[in-house]
């Protein structure tokens, strides 16, 4: 019950920012339109899950930039939301709210924001490209958004400096989704350590839901769940034992 009233309070605080529509709708769409316009004309030969297939430049660009757009928007909005609410959360804690209810309230709002961002990008993408599994495509984008939002909340709790936290989350997000997790451009994609990167499970799911790789898109869902549970545990423990 406490989490529900917190969710209401946090939502009002979030919507107080006038430019919220610009941040959540226009900017990710702008990135998608640009990626589509700049996509290579030629088809690209790809190897994934051991099977070889070709992809149009537009499909590949839109898919990879949808990842980057989701990660950037979700992580930054959750980071600033959590950072702006730091003092309020500390006061609420003194008034008897538990760390768990504060986390649940914040996380619920963040997940709602993530679903909204992903829906915008998903609707744009499926209007242009055809994917193997619509649900898989949507779920993979939501999963990566939730993972990076949780990292954003953790960084907002850990880092006192807005700028340091922003640069850290951005570095991780851009390096992971735009460079490391790009099976076409990355020469490290088949390394074993990549399993520990936050977006790995979601990228696998995304590729399997867009292309017919011979593997079900649900195959890597366990990796995503384990990663998210790990992050939530870190978040809860940090908030519980801080001070």
């Amino acid at each position: 019950m406490k989490s529900v009233s917190l969710l209401k309070y946090y939502t009002i605080a979030f919507l107080r920012e006038r430019g919220v529509i610009i941040s959540l709708v226009i900017l990710p769409l702008l990135l998608q339109v640009s990626a589509q316009a700049a996509a290579p004309k030629s088809d690209i030969l790809m190897k994934f899950d051991g099977s070889t297939f070709t992809s149009s430049g537009v499909t590949l660009n839109l898919m990879l930039y949808s990842l980057t757009a989701v990660v950037i928007v979700a992580s930054i909005s959750s980071f600033f939301l959590a950072h702006n609410l730091r003092n309020t959360s500390a006061r609420l804690k003194l008034q008897g709210y538990s760390s768990l209810s504060l986390i649940i309230g914040l996380l619920t709002l963040v997940i709602l924001i993530d679903v909204f961002i992903v829906t915008v990008i998903y609707l744009y993408d499926v209007a242009i490209i055809s994917v193997r599994s619509d649900i898989g495509f949507f779920v993979s984008l939501v999963s990566i958004a939730v993972i990076f939002s949780t990292i954003g909340i953790i960084l907002a709790s850990v880092s006192d400096s807005k700028s340091l936290g922003l640069y850290l989350i951005l570095t991780l997000g851009v390096v992971d989704t735009a460079f490391i997790e790009n099976p076409v451009l990355s020469r490290r994609y088949n390394d074993n350590w990549i399993d520990f990167m936050p977006s790995h499970g979601s990228v696998k799911m995304l590729f399997r839901s867009v292309y017919d790789t011979g593997t079900a898109w649900t195959e890597s869902i366990y990796l995503i769940i384990i990663y998210e549970i790990g992050l939530l545990l870190v978040l809860w423990l940090y908030n519980r034992y801080r001070n």
């Binding site: 941040s23 900017l27 990710p28 990626a35 316009a37 996509a39 928007v73 600033f80 735009a178």
Partner: peptide, 24 residues
């Protein structure tokens, strides 16, 4: 939130996509 996103998306599109040979 909105300021950082505007700066980020604009610079990313400019330097990584439109002014860059990667944006074929």
């Amino acid at each position: 939130t909105e300021g950082s996103l505007i700066v980020l998306v604009f610079s990313f599109i400019d330097l990584m996509l439109f002014s860059n040979p990667m944006g074929e």
